[in-house]
Design a protein around this nucleic acid. Structure first.
Lengths: 208, 208
DNA sequence: AGATTATTACACCGATCGATGTAGACATTA
DNA sequence: TAATGTCTACATCGATCGGTGTAATAATCT
């Protein structure tokens, strides 16, 4: 499944390229981000990029997979940290949601700009790449969350017919806001209010 | 406020250009959509575009404003149709939400692709243009919805401290889903379930 | 009809960009 | 030392694109 690649060249150079490319792809999008600019951002020669990647497209693909994996890992960490042992379900879910939303302004911020780029160019991206991204990213997070929810349901605090579906709903209700309206920046209290509303909506449908 | 323009040239040509440009800007984004392609799509000479618009940027701006105004008008129509006389508030809100979401697959669909493009290139778009778009588009819809909600609150079915804020929350809860996850196409029943969940979340917080 | 304006097709310029070639500098390994 | 592989700077190619000039044609107006 996971295609084995031959990462030729020096690893630190490769990492610098991927990191720099993420910054520029996130800010300027696939087309507008030039390889010269990426090379400059990475502190690397233009030619070196082609020593590590065959194509601009392959570089883009690598950047997506790399960033997606890192962010998904972080989100799963947050899930485990907040839902491993539940004391107050509503409060724990709100804290989980807030921790997620705080990622939007963390050093992982460029990732979400990249996601917006992908979303915009979705008609232009090969469906297989899109499927892979979906599975190794949001899909994995949703699966982990579903497992935790099922575990909680086992304790009698929830009633779940379809945990995976419920996990999807919860993720949606938590993170819906800032992903749509980018013009209004919400302060921390407003953020908390929105997350609370989302969590309550979830519990309203699934609590028992 | 509203800058008076001098729409030189033949109106039908201009309309054809704007319409064709919307299709290509929506599909390919600002950068990738070439003027030659737009001209071909509109059935118009390349040179004619520059007879109606000074710039690619001005054309883009015009397309945004035009499409935004049309969609906002449609959404406001839907508001008026469902909330002019409320009999069953929850049901009417759900129907309103479903009518809104149906726009995503209507002939207005390119508009939302365009919005995704704007969202992606948001760092690249002049803030003033962004502000104008926000005000004549979602802002106007939100204002209209707020007015209706205030009217309903006058009847005692809602308790609103800040109708405008409440309107924003409701719009968010209704339309959050499909704007984020574009990979999974939701069927009609799932759509209805999501809208219902959003409406219930809204009423849970505001009903009295 | 005559005058004016809009539209068209075509050629062109300058700039950008992806990608490749080349040759030398540098480091590592045998 | 010799060999191998990577990195860098630079030069170049072909293609695309935004924008302009021009001259002929078509549509509109008075």
């Amino acid at each position: 499944m996971t295609d084995k690649k031959k990462p030729s060249g020096q690893p630190d150079k490769r990492r610098a390229i991927v990191h720099g490319a993420l910054q520029l792809f996130a800010r300027d999008g696939y087309t507008r981000a030039s390889l010269d600019a990426i090379a400059a951002e990475a502190g690397v020669s233009n030619r070196t990029i082609y020593n590590h990647f065959t194509d601009k497209a392959e570089l883009f693909q690598t950047v997506i997979q790399d960033s997606t994996r890192r962010v998904a890992d972080t989100m799963i960490d947050i899930i485990d940290r907040h839902l491993a042992k539940v004391v107050d379900l509503e409060n724990d879910l709100v804290e989980l949601g807030l921790a997620w939303l705080r990622l939007l302004t963390s050093d992982l911020a460029p990732h979400f700009a990249l996601i917006r780029q992908i979303n915009a160019e979705i008609e232009y991206i090969p469906p297989t790449a899109l499927k892979v991204w979906q599975e190794t990213g949001p899909g994995r997070v949703r699966q982990e969350l579903a497992d935790r929810l099922r575990q909680i349901a086992g304790g009698g605090q929830l009633t779940l017919a379809d945990p995976l579906r419920a996990a999807g709903h919860l993720m949606l209700l938590i993170s819906a806001d800032n992903l749509t309206d980018r013009t209004a920046l919400h302060d921390e209290t407003e953020l908390a209010a929105m997350v609370s509303a989302g969590v309550r909506a979830f519990l309203y449908g699934y609590k028992r």
